[in-house]
Design a binder for these strands. Structure first.
Length: 266
DNA sequence: AATGGGACCTGCGCGC
DNA sequence: TGCGCGCAGGTCCCAT
């Protein structure tokens, strides 16, 4: 599922491929993915508009358009952006001025496309917490001190810190040797600092390997991301822990599958 | 404030 | 082989 590293990977690829190209048309195969405005206006708003810049904020992609407006794309769990596309398997495709298609695929139709005057005015954006790489250690430890929420649920809360989803929350906690069930305020200063470092490290490494292709995520080229081979706990229930050889356990926290090693994570 | 559940969806893998 | 079911998760929303 696309989290910060996957969305960042897509952003970097799109920068190389589509910036300064024009959208000359839109093919709609399933209008549900268009959240605003209505589909007719959505299409009209994009016609003959160039893509000037690609921005990422948390898990949200933002296209700055030559019209001065913005198109936002949230991939949710199964969204993909594929170039060049075929227009057949997509929920929606953008016809570009180079004669090729940029496909938006989304098997579960949870993804959201919007055209807005200013992306910073979106409620989702206004409530979004800081980017992990812009947050300071002091602020991170301060947040933890004041929260009783389970640490895993907290670091997945986009209002607290943006970009971390279920996969990287599990991986960061394993690397920091912290039990995901712990209350945030029970972490020592040292543990909090360490967790913050591991979050940044795991995200950086995942970006380096162009994301984790579990479920539906692929790069814009259609190639998988390579980071899956470096996962240590995610989706490894009952498999041996790489560190202690004990069994990786799966529980549910905040309604999400949670994988950890009870022996290594305290 | 924290927590738990359901809703949105489809495709996959499982058990029978 | 085939059917039905549970489950996956990002985000929002509601209830307790």
């Amino acid at each position: 599922m696309p989290e910060l590293p996957e969305v960042e990977t897509i952003k970097r690829e799109l920068e190389k491929i589509i910036v300064n190209k024009k959208i000359i048309g839109v093919i709609i195969n399933n209008a549900k993915v268009i959240r605003e405005p209505k589909k007719e206006k959505f299409v009209a708003d994009l016609k003959n508009v160039a893509i000037k810049e690609i921005i990422r904020r948390g898990k949200l992609l933002i296209f700055a358009l030559s019209s001065g407006r913005f198109m936002t794309i949230h991939l949710k769990m199964t969204g993909q952006l594929i170039y060049p596309g075929n227009g057949k398997t997509s929920r929606l495709s953008f016809k570009l001025s180079d004669g090729k298609l940029l496909d938006f695929n989304d098997s579960r139709i949870f993804g959201e496309l919007r055209i807005v005057d200013n992306w910073q005015d979106l409620k989702f954006i206004k409530e979004l917490g800081p980017e992990p790489f812009e947050l300071t250690e002091e602020k991170f430890t301060e947040i933890l001190k004041n929260k009783k929420t389970k640490i895993k649920v907290l670091i997945m809360d986009q209002k607290i810190i943006s970009g971390i989803g279920n996969l990287y929350a599990n991986e960061a906690l394993f690397r920091a040797k912290i039990d995901p069930r712990r209350c945030a305020n029970s972490l020592s200063q040292k543990e909090a600092k360490n967790l913050f470092e591991e979050i940044k490290k795991v995200l950086s490494e995942a970006i380096h390997y162009k994301g984790s292709s579990v479920d539906q995520y692929v790069q814009v080229s259609g190639e998988p991301g390579e980071y899956v081979k470096y996962h240590r706990v995610y989706d490894r229930e009952n498999e041996p822990c790489y560190k202690c050889k004990g069994k990786v356990k799966r529980i549910s926290l905040g309604g999400r599958g949670t994988y950890f090693c009870p022996n290594c994570q305290k």
